[in-house]
């Protein structure tokens, strides 16, 4: 009962079926998930296990075939666009593919100014807005002066994902869904991105739902872990429990696939100045 109250976001019996008849895919199959305020929870699973689909349902971007979502203890009603918009002031996302996350016709300033507007800052003087954008960019080690008037396709994948984090920094949502934010970029940038996400959690006090196919990464960042396979949750619990004492056969297989899990993520050896 006590734990129940702490859950900021909860999904009960979430199911998504794509297509009809022979071409029916059950992407997510009666999944129960629960995310506690201020924690980082990971959803781990192989490609095609339904992680993105689950995340989009939690975000209210696709409607579940079945099941309910509870936000701050109240059942979410997302039947109208107006209600969705209200929900989206609380929850934000970083998507898997940075290249398709941007509107290629909008300048980077447009994206960042949208965030300031959403936080009610559209009446602020322009100088203050620039100040805020500069702060957000420097949070992710980018220089606003170099980005202003640029288009997204002029950035690298890593820069794009960092800019997405800058966006979250400006929006300061209660919940962040990070869908494999590092899967499209190299290992060094990956460490930086993770580090920035953790910094966000610490400074803003955000609840983070971290989606990954890499169980080692999940262990490194999260408080609790959900293991997902073929649309179902096969195991869940605290990160230590699940990874150090796995019960499900599938989890053990995932862990064995990662070589030397305990040493691999020693970030102290990474030289940030080179990133």
């Amino acid at each position: 009962m006590v734990e129940e109250n702490q859950a900021i976001l909860k999904g009960v019996g979430l199911t998504k079926v794509f297509g009809l008849g022979h071409r029916k895919t059950i992407a997510v199959d009666h999944v129960d998930v629960e995310f506690r305020e201020g924690e980082v929870s990971s959803i781990v699973g192989e490609s095609g296990s339904g992680k993105t689909t689950l995340a989009k349902m939690l975000l209210g971007l696709i409607n579940p075939t079945e099941g309910e979502i509870y936000f701050q203890g109240k059942r979410l009603d997302l039947r109208t666009y107006k209600k969705k918009k209200e929900y989206w002031t609380n929850i934000q996302a970083i998507f898997q593919d940075p290249y398709s996350s941007y509107n290629i016709f909008n300048k980077i300033d447009t994206l960042l100014l949208d965030c300031i507007r959403m936080r009610g800052g559209h009446r602020l003087p322009h100088a203050r807005k620039v100040e805020m954008m500069t702060e957000a960019c420097s949070f992710v080690n980018l220089k606003y002066e170099e980005l202003t008037n640029k288009y997204p396709f002029e950035l690298s994948g890593g820069q794009m994902q960092r800019l997405m984090i800058a966006r979250i920094f400006l929006l300061k949502p209660k919940i962040l869904v990070a869908d494999e934010p590092t899967s499209m970029i190299d290992a060094c940038s990956r460490a930086t991105i993770l580090d920035m996400l953790m910094k966000l959690r610490d400074e803003v006090g955000m609840t983070i739902i971290f989606i990954t196919h890499d169980i080692g990464l999940a262990y490194y960042v999260s408080d609790s872990v959900y293991i997902m396979a073929h649309g179902k949750i096969v195991e869940s619990g605290s990160a230590d429990d699940v990874i150090l004492h796995p019960k499900a056969e599938y989890t053990r297989r995932l862990i064995n696939d990662v070589p030397k899990i305990h040493e691999a993520w020693d970030l102290s050896t990474v030289d940030y100045s080179e990133i």
């Binding site: 989009k56 975000l59 971007l61 666009y81 918009k85 989206w88 934000q92 998507f95 509107n103 994206l111």
Partner: peptide, 25 residues
Amino acid sequence: RDHVNLSKLSGHSIPHIIINDILPY
């Protein structure tokens, strides 16, 4: 596509999304 999802998450109205995130493409 995710850029449309992102635009929704940024609180834009449907006409705004159609004009800014669909039409140019």
